[in-house]
Write a protein that binds this DNA or RNA. Structure first.
Lengths: 191, 191
DNA sequence: TTGACTATACTGACCGGTCAGTATAGTCAT
DNA sequence: ATGACTATACTGACCGGTCAGTATAGTCAA
């Protein structure tokens, strides 16, 4: 199967980035990790840029899929946000979870060339829409999303922003916040 | 003056990272931007690693300084958080502001080698302490900080998480949130 | 007050390794 | 007989790091 190998290569790249560090994410290393020849990697991805792009796209896809899955058994107000929180924060970076692994690729991409974030940027409009219509006050909804995002990225980078106790408390509070404030625009300092 | 040149090099490095992208942050480019020879750069920073470390340290220092300055004319509850919000979100990335410029260096550092974040990680404990004793409920305080952080980093990476209107609304709401909820631990779903 | 010497702050040509990408010839299942 | 590769060898640019040497200012003994 064609896409099987492509997916295998992307997974291998994510694995290399996590295990050996981003500066060692070479095409040779990816090929070795994937059990494929270097030529094989270039057969599927015309350039390293393409591979990175594929990794970011995979992260976006997987995140969307996790949110959708979470929403399937929870359609009440704020469900999109709860799905987002779960997708970002549930699996730690070290674990083989889809999001965790690929997150590192995201960082790599951003650092090396912000144009690599195109697949993610394309998705932002849809996510903004989902947040604005999530069923809770938009400004608060964005704040919840941004906080989850902030914690996620600090996790990925290994910055100890929170200790374990604080972390669980914060996540619980974030989830709690998705349950109240159902009426938009009635309490904010402005729109 | 000795440190003048070091500071000049750090500023030049930040400028290069912003203008030409992180992948072009070479020692040659830094030297050229600083109006110094490559050897001169290596005279002050033993390695590129050292330079990056210096940049992260500069970011931390400048952030701390901005928070302290903001707190000078505002000692009421939540002032640390308001200072943090201002430091992170007030000056946009493109502007020559201290934080904005150096932020990119932070990303670079994180992506290339998380050990480069040591100066920032060292500061986290103090910041956590400041947040926990900020005068507002800790869980909420952390969420405010994380949201500011999340918005900041998305700014730096150029991810369009919010449109301009949403952005100002979110920042206003964030600031508003630092003013209420003065009693810790009375409304959370848990500690 | 001059000549020998020292410290500091550089300069800029150069070297060597790394790595994306190419080339080419061949394998093998369908 | 085509599509999906493997295997190996190679190119060439780029970049971190080195190093011998230069510039300038200052110290100090005779």
């Amino acid at each position: 199967m064609v896409d099987n190998t492509k997916a295998k290569i992307i997974a291998a790249a994510a694995k290399v980035a996590v295990k050996r560090g981003v500066q060692n994410l070479t095409m040779d290393a990816v090929a070795a990790e994937a059990g494929v020849s270097k030529g094989g990697v270039f057969y599927h991805f015309g350039s390293k840029h393409d591979l990175l792009l594929g990794m970011v796209q995979a992260l976006v896809d997987v995140t969307d899929r996790e949110i959708a899955a979470a929403q399937e058994q929870d359609q009440s107000a704020g469900s999109w946000l709860r799905g987002f929180i779960e997708a970002c924060l549930t699996n730690s970076t070290q674990e083989l979870g889809s999001v965790g692994r690929l997150s590192v690729a995201f960082l790599t991409a951003a650092a090396n060339d912000t144009s690599l974030l195109a697949p993610m940027n394309r998705r932002q409009e849809a996510w903004r829409e989902a947040i604005n219509t999530s069923g809770i006050d938009p400004a608060l909804a964005h704040i919840i999303r941004l906080a989850a995002d902030g914690l996620w990225i600090n996790d990925v980078m290994g910055v100890p922003v929170l200790d374990p106790t604080e972390r669980t408390a914060v996540i619980a509070r974030l989830v709690a916040m998705t349950h109240k404030n159902t009426e938009p625009g009635e309490k904010g300092i402005e729109a």
